[in-house]
Design a protein around this nucleic acid. Structure first.
Lengths: 219, 219
DNA sequence: ATATTTTTTTAGCTTAATCTAAAATATATT
DNA sequence: AATATATTTTAGATTAAGCTAAAAAAATAT
């Protein structure tokens, strides 16, 4: 059984190595967790001793297959709770992270499966990040963004592609929330922007950048 | 800010002193928490130093007003999560406690208020225990049990009065779940039992003891 | 290529929460 | 009332997770 602290380190190492796939430096881990390098070294050695990470002194740390699986299980929980907080308890996009940081450590596999079912087996969290499955695997699904649609087509908003909350806050402001239906009215070739209509409301304009970052399903 | 362990001790002392109102012995606390008397002594002294409990060596421990309020806040969270697990995630009555023991320590006042609202401000948990309000106060509401109804009347099941899970398991077996509608068919004076009908299903018999322990609202 | 700076590790200390064993106090029994 | 038993407290150790300060290694600059 992993401690809360071990889970946090695994998750942090996973996120830091996601892009580069290279070993992560002790300092990077410590910074991300707002702790000291000495503490990170200690924990990294402990994770390595448990077979969750591979580590060579002064060379940084990588997760093993086992460590990656455990980290993804935590990520799965985090993202499912985020969906719950946003969709069912009406939290804002930028408020969910902190609470999910606590909820992700609740230990009950059945709880998470029930939550997943209750939420309708979402494939992405509100930030557009994929939700790993129960085995700690990320199933990559080809995504459709609003920008590929043509005038006359209709779609439903699944999530945002970009995991920063800037976009999410902007969408919130213009009343585009998860699950709403959108109809494409016009496409403006000169700047690749769209005129759209959100469920009965008046038409609004989306820039190409925004359109490219909204993940949707066709209706 | 209270630690998880402090919260557990407060809750345990509250429960143990609920009936007698008298000081609770160190051993009783230790037993309930499956720990050792020495550990309980340590923590009790710590709670007393923080003004959450009053304690005299060898004489047992009581909660102060402040301690009681904090304990009731934890109880509130526990019971709201139980309602959530039962009503929304379809857990069984006897499965919710263990998971709620973890969820009750999540720290976010807003989360609990949102959860309360989402659940429709329930006044009792599935075991029939009252849910304290946000200020850590238990508002006692006069309750109506099925046993006071007359033939022809209809009601909805709110919860069970008895907090043991025996009754709950029994109700589960005869398909009486939270929120179902019941119609009283007959009352049998010789043993005070009832014939009832659950939402369209065939008539069943309830003993007086069971009828006295089902809290309902009249329809 | 040597010296300086930065990063990482080690060593040793701290705190919270536990434990065991021994001492102190309270309760029960003759 | 004296003694035996049970309960409670204290003392001292342990574990997990953190810290600071100093040592070791790596990276950078002259």
């Amino acid at each position: 059984m992993l401690t809360r602290s071990e889970e946090n380190y695994l998750k942090t190492i996973l996120h830091l190595s996601e892009e580069t796939q290279k070993p992560v430096s002790t300092n990077a881990v410590a910074d991300k967790l707002s702790t000291k390098a000495a503490s990170a070294t200690d924990m990294i050695q402990k994770l390595a001793a448990k077979g969750l990470a591979s580590y060579y002194k002064y060379k940084g740390v990588k997760l093993t297959t086992k460590g990656t699986r455990e980290a993804l299980r935590v990520v799965r929980k985090h993202r499912l709770w985020e969906v719950f907080l946003l969709k069912e308890l009406h939290f804002k996009w930028d408020e969910v992270h902190e609470i999910a940081e606590q909820l992700e450590h609740i230990k009950s596999p059945l709880l998470i499966e029930r939550l997943d079912e209750h939420l309708g087996f979402p494939k992405f969290d509100p930030h557009g990040d994929p939700i790993p499955n129960a085995n700690g695997e990320v199933v990559t699904i080809p995504t459709t963004t609003l920008s590929i649609l043509n005038p006359g087509e209709r779609c439903r908003v699944i999530c945002a592609k970009d995991s920063s909350s800037d976009l999410l806050t902007y969408l919130d402001k213009i009343d585009i929330s998860l699950g709403v239906e959108i109809e494409i009215m016009e496409f403006h070739a000169f700047d690749s922007s769209f005129s759209i209509r959100v469920e009965g409301a008046g038409p609004i304009t989306l820039s190409s950048k925004v359109a490219e970052n909204i993940i949707i399903e066709r209706l």
